[in-house]
């Protein structure tokens, strides 16, 4: 079966995935482009067995202690959503990663898994990333962080989120899934962009007749979404 990307895949999906390709190879807030690309290729290797780019992505032929600490997290994420436990995070932090480094690692890895699964679903080749950026990470923490009930600190929505919250979520009462990675705001922004364009924009979540195309109705979207979350054993 051949699929013609340009005529079949919605422009919004193509655009948001191009944006991810650029973002994943770029330096972030706590990891540089080479390290972020290592997460993506490592996840692909565990998820699909595809190892073509993995060797090339090793930094100077060997892994830093930070990357060694990141690896078990990537394995848990790639294995299946249900294999992730609090111990996964605790072990990473005990191995020297900061909470912010852990959050960015989760964001980059899961976004790369999203791209790979999409292509796998359509029978297309996996994403090819351009050369990674090696500029130093910006290391900027948001100021309005709170413990809202997750394992990691988050930027609240509404007044409690102050300027950081307003910049991230606008006036919307962002659900927890959009706040989950807000310790690293750029990661939260990318997750919201993917969700908006590939699933449903947050402001239309409760409009049960909304879908991006008339061919795939909202009830079908929710059937596939619910089945995926059941297989990943996601309570949320």
């Amino acid at each position: 079966m051949t699929l013609n990307n340009d005529t079949v895949i919605r422009k919004e999906i193509l655009d948001v995935q191009d944006r991810q390709k650029q973002s994943i190879r770029s330096s972030g807030t706590w990891w540089d482009g080479k390290e972020r690309l290592f997460f993506a290729y490592q996840a692909r290797a565990f998820l699909t067995g595809e190892t073509t780019h993995l060797q090339k992505s090793k930094i100077n032929g060997q892994e830093s202690s930070r990357l060694s600490a990141a690896k078990p997290v990537i394995v848990s994420l790639a294995g299946n959503g249900k294999h992730i436990t609090k111990k996964t995070m605790d072990d990473a932090l005990n191995s020297g990663l900061s909470e912010a480094e852990y959050v960015e690692l989760i964001g980059v890895t899961t976004r790369s898994i999203c791209l790979d699964l999409f292509n796998k679903g359509l029978g297309l080749p996996y994403t090819t990333y351009e050369k990674p950026e090696s500029s130093p990470p910006s290391q900027q923490l948001p100021r309005s962080l709170k413990k809202e009930g997750a394992w990691v600190q988050t930027v609240p929505a509404g007044q409690a989120g102050d300027i950081d919250g307003k910049e991230l979520y606008g006036e919307s009462q962002a659900p927890f899934i959009f706040r989950a990675l807000s310790l690293v705001p750029e990661e939260a922004k990318e997750v919201m962009a993917i969700t908006t364009n590939q699933y449903v924009p947050s402001e239309k979540l409760m409009r049960l007749d909304f879908s991006h195309t008339k061919e795939f109705e909202r009830s079908q979207i929710e059937l596939v979404a619910g089945r995926t979350s059941l297989l990943n054993e996601c309570f949320y």
Binding site: C114, R179, Y199, A225, Y236
Partner: peptide, 23 residues
């Protein structure tokens, strides 16, 4: 295409939820 996009998106969201412990 839409079904693949939905599976891919929720595979990302489920992992984020499970890895950050959001209630």
């Amino acid at each position: 295409v839409e079904a693949a996009a939905t599976v891919a998106t929720f595979s990302m969201l489920d992992r984020i939820a499970n890895a950050t412990g959001i209630p």
